[in-house]
């Protein structure tokens, strides 16, 4: 599975767009434009893009409230995403869902979820549908290490194995279950071995290497798509931001954050594109300029979008 220059360009461009999108969201939060809670995926762009790019547009995806990156990689219009964060009528949920509930069936996005393990069994159901109707689709659920201890997720590990559902679970192990080290919350060394106990094929990958994430996930997706059964990927990654805006981070040291920041994929990946794949600094600068222009348009669109009318408040309770 060789990635073309165009693929690599698109990967970096999307990763950078996600970083800038999240930074802008944080800025909107701090200026009071964005309400509620915000869980940025800053530092986890390589997994967002590397995990989702192997999916077809019609493959299904569930994720968690740290899912803006995956949603954008799947094809959610970032303008609709930002407008949703600002509670506007033009948002992907018309202002009714906010940061934690991006959903767009037109790109296979079955939803972020504010209950961290809840998307997993929904993805298994979507995968079962694909299997029953022989559509060739797969479903993926992306969640963090903390979700691995929720009952619904554990039940879904068993269901998918029993049904041999074409599903991939992509676990972003960022070492912290919200604000507590995951190592103190489990009795095994890895998370992947728990899935193995349910009969899943398991893989592990460096979540700060977007190319490795892409290749590993592509292998998993094809395995599931070809009837090989469910695959669990544990990607080692790290949040370079707190759990949410306002996190005081007493659970980790500045040194630890600095160590991971030195490997920040948003700076390391473009350097690698130059060093290993023949990109020129000009090409990288061009991508950065494109993303800056797109971000300006995204923010402008969101800020200038109308608020929902209160008359719409009761719509969408029932179909």
């Amino acid at each position: 599975m060789t990635l073309s220059s165009a693929d690599l360009r698109r990967m970096y461009r999307t990763m950078l767009l996600i970083r800038r999108f999240e930074e802008q969201a944080v800025a909107f939060f701090l200026s009071g434009e964005l309400r509620g809670s915000l869980h940025p995926c800053i530092g986890q762009e390589a997994t967002a893009v590397g995990a989702v790019f192997p999916l077809r547009r019609d493959d299904y995806l569930t994720c968690t409230y740290r899912g803006h990156g995956q949603a954008i990689a799947k094809g959610l219009d970032p303008k609709e995403g930002m407008a949703e964060l600002l509670g506007r009528r033009t948002g992907c949920s018309q202002g009714k869902g906010g940061s934690m509930h991006y959903t767009d069936l037109s790109v296979g996005l079955l939803g972020e979820n504010a209950i961290v393990g809840a998307g997993a069994p929904i993805a298994v159901g979507a995968a079962l549908r694909a299997k029953l109707d022989k559509t060739g689709q797969v479903a993926m659920s992306v969640f963090g290490d903390g979700a691995i201890n929720q009952a619904a997720l554990l039940e879904s590990l068993n269901l998918a194995a029993a049904w041999q559902a074409p599903v991939v679970f992509f676990c972003e192990n960022n070492l912290y279950s919200e604000m507590t080290p995951i190592s103190a919350m489990i009795g095994t060394t890895t998370l992947a071995e728990r899935a193995a106990g349910f009969g899943w094929t398991t893989m592990t990958v460096d979540g700060y290497d977007p190319i490795a994430v892409y290749q590993t996930t592509m292998e998993a997706v094809e395995h599931a798509r070809n009837g090989g059964g469910p695959v669990f990927i544990e990607a080692m990654t790290y949040r370079l931001f707190g759990h949410m805006v306002g996190d005081t981070e007493p659970y980790r040291t500045k040194e630890e954050v600095a160590e991971w920041r030195a490997r920040d994929p948003i700076t390391a990946f473009p350097q690698r594109l130059i060093d290993e794949f023949g990109f020129t600094p000009n090409e990288i600068a061009e991508i950065e300029a494109e993303v800056a222009a797109e971000m300006e348009e995204i923010s402008r669109f969101a800020l200038q979008s109308p608020w929902p009318d209160v008359s719409e408040i009761g719509e969408h309770v029932f179909a």
Binding site: I122, L128, A152
Partner: peptide
């Protein structure tokens, strides 16, 4: 697990 899987089936 299976009620949520049913939600996934229903959504798709």
């Amino acid at each position: 697990g299976f009620v949520s899987a049913a939600v996934g089936l229903a959504m798709t």
